[in-house]
Design a protein around this nucleic acid. Structure first.
Lengths: 254, 254
DNA sequence: CCTGTTGGGTTGTATATACAGGCTAGACCA
DNA sequence: TGGTCTAGCCTGTATATACAACCCAACAGG
């Protein structure tokens, strides 16, 4: 039922389509609220909501008294929305594959128990994976999953892991926290990623949540020379309302 | 003129205050739209806008038919909003100081000219700084500022840099892009940060914008073992509307 | 030529009203 | 006792209307 889409959302999509197709370029003028009222037969409040949300999301800039203009906020940064390594690789036109190095059931301890909000000793399913981009090893993933969320893990053969980055039975990334740190890789990671000795490693520590509970805890190792991690930072009080400050500095727990 | 604050914003602040004071705990019920209409004497649309924006910003969760509830989204992550190293250090109760190692005028080349959207050869003011936390060197900053935005830089003595992380005459961070990569530090950085050989370095590449134009380009070097960079990732299609996915993986330009 | 005014267009906010649809507790019935 | 139904509350959306503040260009007067 496509009619279920709210009209303000249809308006937003209409304008986003014009921007992403290039019909509207950065700094171009976007139809005013009253123009949308006439052309799209909506009330001014509906047009207002559509344009305001597009402003909040960084697509356009609104200036009281002048009008609404396409923002170059998004084009300033060529950040891509990357949900997982497989999508990122696909976006580059390359092929993704992965292989399971180890699978076992373990008991949660220390950092992992804490991250998953469970007691020490809770059953955890552990996977060690390598992801390939065009058959070049590009990421070593160390994934810990709450066994209660993946009860059939040990029975299955994970010779090929689902490329979208989640195990069978686990919902795709709905929400995730990530932290990055620079470390020197251990022997195994260096071997699998074919890294030079002395080359630093960028480790993404990712925790995913399902229905309000943490269910996976992963360490994603990348060759530091090949990848970087980027984000966007908008301090509070800046013109854009959603608090989308994103990249932050924190002291490591000692 | 404090009366200039819109009523929907006053409503939002009122509820945020209750949440941050602890009067409202996660999963507690937030007054419904109609209750706010009565108690705060606003129209239902105004109450709706306040609650909807609080939902978009992750403070509350709304369920049609049941009500509005305090979210634990923010308490899940202990991320801090960090605008600059000085604020971060102050937040920990430590004292920040910094020292200028070098100051000079240079000409923009390559990466810096591109980042600042200027032609090769444009005048650039360059600073090399060390930041200290309780007199422990903790960050080496390599800052490039458009000379046209800081015309009096060379005349001044920057023996102590303004701790808020900006030069005299430059507005504080209004908007910034950051990228992170793991590298091995060069001799100077290693020396100033008192790092071990072989210890990786986490480099934040930061570009700040003022009035829509990039004005500074910095490299912030941290000892990889002491700091980490964290962010929050919310994939598109997730319940919260603002596209605040923030931490992303990108291939380095080769 | 310069300056001050004014009018029309634009966004920002606020209200009153209306209907649709989800959810739940309690009434009601078998 | 147990299942079903409904009234009432809640959010989600949409419209019509109103006023304030802002911006800019056109115009009038010195």
């Amino acid at each position: 039922m496509s009619a279920a889409k709210p009209r303000y959302q249809e308006l937003k999509d209409f304008i986003i389509a014009k921007i992403s197709s290039g019909e509207l370029q950065p700094a171009d003028r976007v139809p005013s609220e009253n123009e949308l009222v006439e052309s799209k037969r909506v009330s001014r409040m509906t047009a207002n909501r559509a344009l305001r949300e597009l402003n909040d999301e960084g697509y356009v800039e609104r200036v009281a008294g002048r009008g609404t203009f396409v923002s170059d906020y998004r084009s300033r940064s060529d950040l891509l929305e990357v949900q997982n390594i497989a999508e990122e690789i696909a976006r580059r036109g390359n092929t993704h594959s992965s292989r399971v190095l180890r699978q076992s059931q373990q008991h949660a301890r220390g950092e992992i128990a804490k991250a998953l909000h469970v007691d020490q000793g809770t059953a955890i399913f552990h996977l060690l994976l390598v992801h390939f981009e065009n058959n070049v090893p590009i990421q070593v993933e160390d994934r810990h999953v709450l066994a209660s969320f993946a009860p059939d893990c040990l029975e299955q053969d994970f010779d090929v892991v689902t490329p979208s980055g989640y195990l069978t039975g686990i919902a795709p990334l709905q929400e995730a926290e990530q932290a990055v740190r620079a470390v020197m890789p251990n022997e195994a990671v260096r071997k699998y990623l074919e890294m030079d000795t002395g080359e630093a490693c960028l480790v993404v520590i990712r925790r995913t949540w399902t229905k309000g509970r943490p269910v996976t805890f992963s360490r994603l190792h990348h060759p530091g020379s090949r990848y970087e991690l980027t984000g966007h930072y908008t301090p509070p009080g800046s013109p854009r309302t959603p608090s989308s400050h994103v990249v932050q500095l924190e002291k490591l727990r000692q």
